Amino acid sequence: MTYPDPASTANPRTIGIVACSSEGAALCYRTICARAPALLGPHAHPEIVLHGASLADYVAALEAGDLAAVGAIMLRSAEKLAGAGADVLICPDNTIHAAISHVRPRSPLPWLHIAEVVASEARRRGVRRAALLGTRWLVDSSVYPDALGAEDIAFLRPEEEEKDEVARIIMDELVNDIHVPASVAYLESLIARMRDRGCDAVILGCTELPLVLSDQNSVLPTLDSTRLLADAALRYAVS
């Protein structure tokens, strides 16, 4: 591999990661570090600072339907990351972006919005109707309808029992680094059903889903929210 002169991309911005689940944050962090050398040279990546509040605090606020409380937790992370030298913030968790309207106006730093990043990539690929997978909180929220609507892209949610099973797999298994073959098979079969319902791509709208789903085992092209966000952060950092 031929690497660029590091001097040509000197002083990249520092990326601040607002972590929610450890698995999604870790995958995002690893992706930035793995892909940065192609831009910055061998072993190089932008400085990265990460803060993670307890996942239980987020879950309690989500279960209470209190998006203002979710936003307050995100803002606490934002303040800590600003103090640690971050220049831009990303949150590798789709669900808590439902609180972003409580966050951006009071944030000390700019945010890259995960659903906006995914929707932009969907438009670039010519997606017409995307299947949306994620927690029930995410799938029933306006996070992706708003972002996809801005790009004139249609979407389809799973059926009610399917939402429940996907949410169970995410919250009981994937966020705890548990990968059950039967659960992966269920997700694969669900994507096939979504294809039969008219979808031409699938949004992996939970940052843990890319740990078990990819273009290799999905019958629909995948929009990997975790890695797309990492790529967007990297581009921002070196732009």
Rank of each mutant, 00 (worst) to 15 (best):
R35S: 08
S214Q: 07
A237H: 03
A150L: 14
R168V: 00
D146K: 14
D177I: 06
L211W: 11
S101V: 06
S22D: 13
R197K: 15
R168F: 01
E151W: 04
I178T: 15
C91Y: 08
G205T: 09
I73M: 08
G52H: 02
A86I: 02
M1W: 04
E63L: 07
A122M: 09
A230N: 04
T14I: 10
I169S: 01
L211N: 14
Y3S: 10
V143N: 08
R136Y: 00
S21D: 11
P108K: 09
S218K: 11
Y29I: 00
I114E: 07
P46R: 13
L148H: 02
S21R: 03
P6Q: 09
V49G: 13
A154K: 08
L55Y: 15
P210H: 09
L81H: 01
R106W: 03
L132N: 02
I96D: 07
P92V: 04
H179I: 13
L112N: 02
E151K: 15
E173A: 07
I153G: 12
M1L: 13
S142C: 11
A119F: 09
D140N: 13
T31F: 02
A119G: 11
A201D: 07
G71W: 03
I17V: 06
A192G: 15
G205K: 09
C28L: 11
I96R: 05
K163E: 00
R157A: 10
A119V: 05
R76W: 02
V18M: 06
I100E: 02
S239K: 13
E151N: 09
P4C: 10
H43K: 14
L39F: 11
R13T: 00
H51W: 08
G65K: 12
A115I: 06
L133Y: 01
V180G: 06
L132Q: 02
I169R: 08
S183H: 12
C33A: 13
H51E: 06
G41N: 11
A98N: 09
E151A: 05
I17C: 00
V166S: 04
R197G: 07
V180A: 14
L190A: 11
A69N: 05
A167R: 11
D231W: 04
L133R: 01
Y29T: 01
D57V: 06
P108T: 10
V202Q: 11
A38D: 13
P42D: 10
R168M: 03
L75H: 08
E188D: 07
S225E: 02
P4N: 12
A119E: 04
A82N: 03
R123K: 15
I100C: 01
A19C: 15
Q216T: 15
A64I: 02
A36C: 05
D164N: 11
L75F: 06
A64K: 13
D152W: 12
D87W: 00
H97I: 00
E47L: 10
A122G: 05
D146E: 14
P37H: 06
G198F: 07
A64C: 04
H51M: 05
S107H: 07
T226R: 04
R76K: 13
E116I: 01
A60M: 10
I203P: 02
I32Q: 05
A56G: 10
G85R: 04
I153N: 07
E79Y: 01
V70R: 06
S189R: 15
G149H: 09
D177N: 14
R123D: 09
R227G: 04
A230K: 05
V139T: 07
A44S: 15
E208A: 08
P158H: 04
T9P: 05
I203H: 05
S141A: 09
A34M: 07
